[in-house]
Design a protein around this nucleic acid. Structure first.
Lengths: 175, 175
DNA sequence: TATGAAATAATTCGGAC
DNA sequence: GTCCGAATTATTTCATA
């Protein structure tokens, strides 16, 4: 299910790389770069969307501009009986939780939380800590970001578009 | 500098919320929702872009579809003399580092890293650890995500669009 | 199966009000 | 803020390899 039939060739990768940088690039514009007609580009983009390689197009914003000025990561320690499913249920209840994942190490899960300010964060933390199966939390407040990039409304992370080692140099490379 | 002159009203927030969910929504489409003409919406979007409330439009993809199948957070401990600036310089050198930030707690910084596989991650980790002023690292491999949302090419985090406490209910609310 | 070209529908964009 | 018209873009249709 991870590898579907449609071959993902070099052209697709270039197109995806361009759309990651600018979701509003016109098909003709993309075609001029990759050497394809606008029609062909559109067909490929449609297919990439249908096969869920491209999952959406979204505007990225400065969280601070929308009032989200506080960010933190929370390590969550649960009762041994609590399965990840239960954590997921809780995470879905809080719009402040931008991401939740199970991780290696002592903690059972890691939460990425955004709040408007410290007071708001404290309130959210208290609510999370009062969940029945949560035994302990350790919070790490984010002080400042050292990289720019895609500070979407909540997400402050970007994509490594270039290939890691031995890239050919152009920005359209992907692993 | 955080609060600029242009008033950010309810209409702007609705427009931003719509564009976060679909960066390719047409101005007329947005206008129909917020009760504005397409022209008026465009002018507002142009202004939101100019004032850097909206920082860009980008396609979101499944990292796994592009070959990024390994994800981790790395706590970085530095020599006491190393300033955040030095960490930022290092972070910029690695395309695998999707996010880097200073945090509270014992660690000096937290890195969000994406790699194609465990071997690739180990290579990146070794390179990071060999940086002169880095004294220690602790890695937390991400096992599975508990929330869906915006797994952009590298970013797996989404935005809390809804207002936290006492929201009015509709999805266009922001703090 | 994939492409390109032309025709049509929709959208963007600028000016006038 | 709206209305209108020109330029651009998206989308469909058709033909080809």
């Amino acid at each position: 299910m991870t590898d579907k039939s449609p071959p993902f060739d070099e052209l697709d990768r270039k197109i995806v790389a361009i759309l990651i940088e600018n979701a509003r690039a016109s098909f003709a514009e993309i075609g001029a770069v990759v050497g394809l007609s606008a029609t062909a580009v559109k067909r490929r983009v449609d297919r990439l969307r249908k096969t869920d390689v491209i999952t959406g197009f979204r505007a990225t914003v400065r969280p601070a501009a929308l009032g989200w000025r506080t960010e933190a990561y929370i390590e969550v320690y649960c009762d041994s009986a609590a399965p990840p499913r239960r954590i997921a249920e809780v995470a879905r209840k809080y719009p402040e939780i931008a991401a939740a994942m199970t991780v290696t190490g002592a903690a059972d899960a890691l939460l990425h939380v955004r709040a408007t300010d410290v007071e708001h964060f404290e309130e959210v933390l208290e609510r999370i800590r009062s969940e029945p199966f949560i035994r302990k939390t350790i919070s790490y407040m984010v002080l400042s970001h050292l990289l720019p990039e895609s500070p979407e409304a909540g997400a402050s992370e970007s994509a490594p578009v270039a290939v890691p080692g031995g890239a050919t140099g152009d920005a359209t490379n992907l692993p």
